[in-house]
């Protein structure tokens, strides 16, 4: 049972990196590729239908961390206190940027929230690298360790590349390149590598610190039957918003 829940937790975290990675990547590229307001609108519109379905993987990671690894949840988050706070604020500003950018007219308004999307995406991507390095050392190294900062840079670049591949798949030619779905799968897998590596190293420790058998049994009974529904809902999103000639026909809410 501990191994099943480790697998569940790992799928959620790896899935978050592979999926939300391209949303953050598009956010990072916003000031670089979206020189005009129309360009930025198109970039945001390309990722908009996926964002809600993608970011929620991290909410699920946190919930699973609490339910399956209650002894570690506090230690992990507290050890990274300043990084977690900065990442949360980045996440909040990125989301606010998406929800608010089109809710009022005016160049300044949208420009400000676009900057918040880019800024938030940067904070979140960089923070992930720092957090992963600290986790890989068992929190022996602080988040500001030079190697942590380097991994922050690596994750940021990986996400940017993943976001660029996503744009080339969803809006072929619009931002310079066209890529098939296979390329997006590859960039997603590569973007998830840092998280997968840390998880693989931490597996014995995590399995050992799982919640009690009684708790895992209740969780399994309640949650696992719904796993196919969760997967089905995600597949429905990808089926509904697959690229096609109507990708830009409708204005985006974000």
């Amino acid at each position: 049972m501990e191994v099943i829940w480790f697998a569940f937790f790992a799928v959620l975290l790896v899935g978050y990196f592979a999926l939300e990675g391209f949303d953050l990547g598009v956010g990072l590229l916003l000031p670089l590729l979206g020189r005009t307001r129309e360009g930025r609108d198109r970039m945001v519109a390309a990722m908009a239908p996926y964002v809600l379905a993608n970011e929620v993987w991290l909410v699920a990671v946190a919930g699973t961390l609490f339910g399956v690894y209650p002894a570690l949840e506090g230690e992990v988050l507290f050890a990274l206190y300043p990084v977690v706070v900065a990442m949360l604020l980045s996440w909040v500003l990125r989301d606010a940027g998406l929800w608010f950018r089109r809710r009022a007219d005016g160049r300044g308004w949208r420009g400000f929230w676009d900057a918040m999307i880019a800024f938030g995406s940067l904070g979140l991507s960089f923070g992930w690298g720092m957090a992963l390095y600290a986790a890989a050392t068992g929190f022996a190294a602080g988040p500001m360790h030079p190697l942590g900062l380097m991994l922050g840079m690596v994750v940021t670049l990986l996400f940017a590349w993943h976001g660029w591949t996503f744009l080339a798949w969803r809006t072929p030619g619009e931002f310079g390149a066209a890529r098939p779905g296979r390329a997006l799968v590859v960039s997603g897998a590569v973007a998830a590598l840092p998280a997968a590596g840390v998880l693989a190293g931490a597996m014995p420790y995590l399995v050992e610190h799982s919640a009690s058998a009684a708790t895992l049994n209740v969780l399994s009974l309640m949650v696992l039957p719904f796993a196919p529904i969760m997967l089905g809902a995600q597949l429905w999103v990808w089926r509904t918003f697959r690229p096609g000639k109507d990708a830009f026909r409708l204005p985006s809410f974000f």
């Binding site: 699920a60 919930g63 209650p70 969780l219 309640m222």
Partner: peptide, 16 residues
């Protein structure tokens, strides 16, 4: 932890 995990997995994940 169990009800909070269920909230994120059974409810909010699908809601979002």
């Amino acid at each position: 932890g169990a009800p909070l995990a269920m909230e994120t997995l059974l409810a909010f994940f699908l809601e979002s």
